[in-house]
Nucleic acid binder design. Structure first.
Lengths: 360, 360
DNA sequence: GAAGCTCTTGACACCGGTTTCCACTCCCTT
DNA sequence: AAGGGAGTGGAAACCGGTGTCAAGAGCTTC
């Protein structure tokens, strides 16, 4: 059993196996082919689920693959396929919790698929923005990209992706593209639910703090809210709508502005939880008790909603679920069936910051 | 100038260039070689900064590369190099803001290096944890991994990485490994600073809420705090130390427990900001005003510290800077020089939640 | 003027997969 | 029994780079 140089396969086999078994070397497709007694092309067929393999052969090969824990090299495969097994998340959302939840959701949807997630924050105002995105995608030959808001709302990016033929999913509060490229969050419906909640409690003089106008969701949230009020016969006084910036500080400032109005609003709906937290603080400074003197509600249901006093009534957005659906749609594996769109709809979470207004 | 099938290079050249110029095809190393009139091996030498290229040749090739915007294919390069240009961030830290800041820092440090960041949350308690990590690294042939707490504190992971020969940087509050594998955060020093601050204000009966014992930082924060008190001749009564879990809820519960003690502490130092926010709420429920009746301080200086009332005096940890240094150390490019270790040291941020205790 | 050296350069195999092309089985017709 | 089609597996080229090694150019040295 010496390591002769003859092409006698069985003679060298033990050497090769030794190298494999000791873990000095990962198994390659050639090893699997040799061990299963077939050509590497056949192994390749099994890996790629070709139907042209006899069932018996397939099973033998799969057994060998499982036994040796073989996994094809994504780089080699990618090189031959002319694309990688990487999915890019290109984002410019400033909220850490949104970003992390989205990442977790994407990973949920990618689990077991062999794809990996590459994160790529971006700055849409940079002069090299589009070029950067293009470079990122082309260099890495990304399989596809996921675009959460607000990059998802940038048509320049969508055009670019179509142009270079990169798969993409846009996550947004309204349909902006063909259905196959969209996961829609329907912020509008969430805001409507909040409107109904406030009206249901008996509020009629309600302040609203908008989010950044650069986010489509800001307009949707306001629009949905206004829809609900109008439907209930309550008017949203434009004088009680102020422009926030999705930050705690802006919520504080806007809250103070709204509370300075006469008559004072009995409720304030902030475009997100952070601004609502700011309003809480403004209320405290004004000597008001929430929810007795003032109802304060937010949107997002991020951690902060439960970490303030009183805990915020807010709209829960299922970010992680949205991410999962986006990833699944992007890779659309065999047997893929679209997730239930209803799962992406935000819903009301009632906590202690909202109550009926005091009787006058 | 027909597209003959003769191997005459100059005859086909215009066709090839047309394909390139129209953007139908990305430039390859062969294109660059042809355009520069050299072999692809020489182009490869230029790309890899080999010194064995004549200056004149190098410049000619670089000019062609710049003109055509050529960038080598990371997959092909990786295949030949037997490793990828991907850096993995393996983490189990539950705090979104920490995670995002860390990611941003890592990306800062990787900018322009040609590496990409692949995120990989993990569950250390899973039975397949080590196997998952190994699979992730080996399949993707990762260039290296970054380990933030608390995975960074798991010796099994470090052993695994050494075993499979993967570069790694551990980020932790104390040195756990050889210097070349560590970025140290020195939570202890931060906690000391807080101890000095509280003692300096005149507090002597101080409550402390520890973090999760599975995080090394929890012990460091407690230890550093105790150091500072001892040094100042103040005793940290073990009865005033309670076990939290780094969450808002645990902070609330622990706060209530501490405030129920007689005599009541005049100050409470929570192991992180979230727990401090919980303590604020407990104080409010107990009818106490912060900081007049009770000083409450936290640790981390995450967003929540400024989104509660009163804003928290806390310890700022420079997460993003730490991440940047970790990435730079991992890829240790030419001309790399270690970042200033002082930049990773946490520091006190005084806000409105701390004050001198009331005179009795 | 030939040997010896350094500096440059390119031919060729290879990384680990996939695709193309072809030959060889089967199995079923006629 | 010959002919045909579909199913199956092998050889070789290819994806876009890098490693090895040897050869050619130019210079010194004796």
């Amino acid at each position: 059993m010496t390591s002769s140089k003859t092409p006698n396969k069985s003679a060298d086999e033990s050497d090769v196996n030794a190298a494999l078994e000791s873990g000095r070397r990962r198994a390659t497709i050639n090893d699997i082919a040799r061990l299963a007694g077939v050509s590497k092309k056949t192994v390749s067929r099994v890996i790629n689920q070709s139907p042209f393999v006899r069932e018996e052969t397939r099973q033998r090969i799969e057994a060998v693959i499982a036994e040796w824990g073989y996994a094809p090299d994504p780089q080699a495969r990618g090189l031959a396929f002319r694309r990688s097994f990487l999915i890019g998340m290109i984002y410019d959302n400033p909220n850490p919790q949104y970003v992390v939840n989205m990442q977790l959701g994407l990973l949920d949807g990618m689990r077991g698929s062999g794809f990996e997630l590459v994160v790529h924050p971006c700055d849409r105002s940079s002069p090299t923005f589009l070029q950067d995105v293009r470079m990122f995608i082309e260099r890495q030959k990304l399989f596809g990209v996921i675009l959460p808001p607000s990059v998802s709302e940038d048509e320049r990016v969508a055009d670019l992706l179509r142009d270079i033929g990169c798969e993409y999913i846009r996550i947004a509060s309204v349909p902006l593209d063909e259905e196959e490229h969209m996961i829609v969050g329907h912020d509008r419906l969430g805001a409507q639910a909040m409107g109904e909640h406030l009206v249901g409690l008996g509020h009629e003089r309600i302040g609203f703090i908008t989010g950044l106008p650069s986010f489509r969701s800001s307009h949707e949230r306001r629009g949905g809210f206004e829809d609900a009020l109008t439907k209930a016969g309550v008017k949203l006084d434009p004088d009680y709508v102020v422009q926030g910036a999705y930050t705690f500080e802006s919520g504080l400032a806007c809250g103070e502005a709204l509370l300075a109005k006469t008559p004072r609003p009995t409720a304030i709906f902030a475009g997100n939880d952070e601004m609502a937290a700011g309003v809480l603080q403004a209320a405290r400074r004004a000597g008001l008790t929430v929810p007795e003197d003032l109802t304060v509600v937010g949107f997002d249901d991020f951690q902060i909603a439960q970490a303030v006093w009183p805990p915020l009534t807010t709209i829960h957005i299922p970010t992680r679920e949205v991410g999962r659906m986006a990833a699944e749609k992007l890779i659309a594996r065999e047997g893929y069936e679209p997730g239930d769109p209803a799962k992406t709809i935000p819903y009301l979470v009632t906590r202690e910051s909202s109550a009926a207004p005091k009787k006058v």
